[in-house]
Design a protein around this nucleic acid. Structure first.
Lengths: 133, 133, 133, 133
DNA sequence: GTGGTCTAGACCACC
DNA sequence: GTGGTCTAGACCACC
């Protein structure tokens, strides 16, 4: 599969599936319009409960990552339209809050934080951004 | 109080208290060595149960943010020693992963992400980093 | 159960549960990977509150003794990796301090102390290491 | 003073005083029959509450480490008679239990544990066994 | 069914 | 007065 799931992680399994799929899309492993495996197929392949995978798919639909066509299966969505994107950028900004808070607690300089971000971006590119939640 | 708590948030209330206190320390609202309100007083002021606050204090002790003196109360710690800091920087890097993942999913350029981070850092400085958990 | 708990002991009950479980693992009563009784089941069997047992389990997770799998229960961990072990040896050394102090107060010779330790190790092997906290 | 006390330690202050005095006796800093400072004097010198020191003295009497002579003050006891000693050796053996338990959990060999004990004994002799509880 | 969290209220050791 | 622990009972997310 394009990602792994750790049942011992504190992040719910269904959430890990959601993130795993998004990551696969981000990395181009799953292309726009590509057909997703069925809920039961993915569940079988990853030895997960199909209810768990179903819930993940629901969430992915809600987040606009995939689309379900009646009786024909699920497909990777085209990239979200600009408006939606704005909302996501806002979400990203919100996601940065705990990071900034911790950085401030550690009395890090702005540039130190920025350097760390660049490093995180580079890590990802080198494929080292592979697992975990 | 220096922070708010949302009982309907998925993050547990005691965790929100932990983050709230760390944020207060980061912002200088709580100074090194300053006396914390007693567990019961904070609980009363925030209309939480004393057990919930006690758990938060224990977590804060474990994270080195506060220190408890026998029957006298809790006090804000002096800043964590540099060694401890290293471990925290690593934690910060880990905290950046989901952010990077989302950014990649949004097909943002590195510099776009960096700009967003700079904005988040600036927002904080302007005191707009005030609420949420 | 594989251990007993003394509600009047100065060591908190939840701590006694932690030690009891570690002892069971050390003795092989609980094998690596084995499923732990559920929090509520153990609580019922020991006539403790489920909260107390839950706290013990959380502590055991933190110490790497058990692992919790989402909605399926807790399991005994594989043995801690060597690195972690180093830290534990240090802890063991620290735990020896009060023993040494008492021995010195009793004016015991080094070899007397060592003999006592050998005896304690043997006692354990003979299963006489069974009770107390 | 012959020892220090850490108010932030989880071990009660009065207990630290007890251990501190025993350690001083063990090290010969306080000799048999020597006069102890009065409760209030020791409290003043260590900036502790006199109630705390009083409690420690009570405990020291109970353990046979010091003796109080009506109106004349407290004195370091002569070393405990052999019978008493036996009881203490038993106590020492009991104190070894948690150490043995942890060692067993770590799957340490007997000789490894013995070596660690020798090291702890040597550490003490080199005066490195000075503080902490 | 499984663990995790929270309130409510009591009790305890320590200072 | 201060933090720590425990029982009782309710509720929740996850699988």
């Amino acid at each position: 599969m394009w990602f792994r799931v750790d049942p011992r992680s504190p992040t719910p399994v269904y959430r890990q599936v959601v993130e795993g799929v998004k990551e696969a899309v981000a990395k181009g492993v799953l292309a726009s319009g590509e057909r997703m495996p069925s809920v039961r197929e993915l569940a079988a392949r990853m030895t997960l409960n199909h209810n768990t995978v179903a819930r993940a798919y629901q969430e992915l639909v809600r987040e606009g990552v995939i689309e379900v066509v009646q009786g024909r299966g699920a497909f990777v969505s085209p990239r979200p339209p600009p408006l939606d994107r704005e909302r996501r950028v806002a979400a990203l900004l919100a996601a940065l809050r705990p990071v900034v808070r911790e950085a401030r607690y550690l009395e890090m300089e702005d540039e130190e934080v920025v350097d760390l971000v660049r490093r995180a971006l580079a890590d990802w590119r080198q494929g080292r951004g592979g697992e975990g939640a």
